[in-house]
């Protein structure tokens, strides 16, 4: 085992500077402990073996990035910081964007976030160093690396990885429409199910979906565990299954309203119960009977 000294060089390929500012905080504020990783910040890319790349790779950056990459000596690792470096995030499908960066360089670790917390950045760099050690010692990269900084915790109000409460979701697609970075997709399986997917590597953690969700089904957790290996890029997804129900009165299949909506519409518990398991058509009849029969 040879000792590895990680030598870090940062490249901004067109980020909004959030990740770069947070990188400075990570590097220069003591509480984030980047120093404990033994990282050395180098002034010349020629001396680097740990490349940190931010941004979605703009058209003008492309040739400069390619040129910079030729100066690196193997082995080296690449850590992409910020959602837009992983999937171009909110900037995807613009005429000026040529990324994501993994089209042009083999990326080892991705850190989603907009911007990621300094601890996520430190975690990404720590994982990068692990991969670098393995590369230097000629070992194969494992499928996953355990979280290195386990004792950090973000405040409860932190907008971290999004999650879904399937019980309350009615697949109304509001979240899909208000999501600015196409991180949410709802698809129908054709046999009575909806699949609700949140792809964390496209998410910009803005909380728009949670804010506009009419039933409170989608919500942000305070988890900032977003530093993942490249092999996990497309599988880092929150999946929810929402099913059609069978109407207990007529037997038709229907999408039930969420409990949250029902309790807003009907204030008495027994009425809510009456409406819970029947389709819209039967609900109309039942409530007409309840009031006028």
């Amino acid at each position: 085992m040879s000792e590895v000294i990680p030598k870090l060089f940062r490249i901004n390929t067109g980020s909004c500077n959030g990740c770069d500012v947070e990188f400075v905080a990570t590097a220069f504020v003591d509480k984030f402990q980047l120093e404990t990783l033994g990282v050395e910040l180098v002034n010349d890319v020629k001396d680097a073996n740990l490349l940190v790349i931010t941004g979605p790779l703009t058209a003008r950056s492309e040739s400069f990035l390619k040129n910079t990459l030729t100066k690196l000596k193997k082995p080296f690792v690449v850590v992409g910081i910020g959602t837009c470096s992983v999937s171009c995030g909110i900037f995807r499908d613009s005429y000026a964007i040529n990324g994501p960066i993994d089209k042009f360089v083999e990326v080892d670790v991705n850190v989603a976030g907009c911007p990621p917390r300094p601890q996520s950045i430190a975690e990404g760099i720590a994982k990068g160093i692990k991969v670098l050690e393995q590369k230097m010692n000629g070992e194969a990269t494992p499928k996953a690396i355990d979280t290195i900084f386990k004792d950090f915790s973000a405040p409860d109000s932190f907008r971290g990885r999004m999650s879904l409460n399937e019980e309350n979701c009615t697949a109304c697609r509001t979240c899909e429409i208000v999501c600015p970075s196409n991180a949410i997709e709802i698809s129908s399986t054709g046999d009575g199910w909806f699949v609700h997917k949140i792809w964390h590597n496209s998410c910009c953690f803005c909380g728009n979906c949670a804010y506009f969700c009419p039933t409170g089904a989608i919500f942000s957790t305070n988890s900032f565990d977003t530093a993942k290996l490249q092999s996990e890029k497309f599988s880092d997804v929150n999946v929810g299954y929402i099913d059609y129900k069978k109407c207990s009165s007529c037997g038709d299949r229907y999408m039930p309203p969420s409990k949250g909506l029902l309790s807003k519409a009907y204030t008495h518990d027994d009425v809510t119960k009456l409406n819970e398991k029947i389709c819209p058509k039967c609900r109309k009849e039942a409530n007409f009977k309840r009031m006028y029969a």
Binding site: G14, G55, T58, A59, I90, F91, D93, S94, A96
Partner: peptide, 13 residues
Amino acid sequence: GFIHRGMESLVTQ
């Protein structure tokens, strides 16, 4: 131009 992301086009999309 290194950070030009075509955002004025994106906002209309």
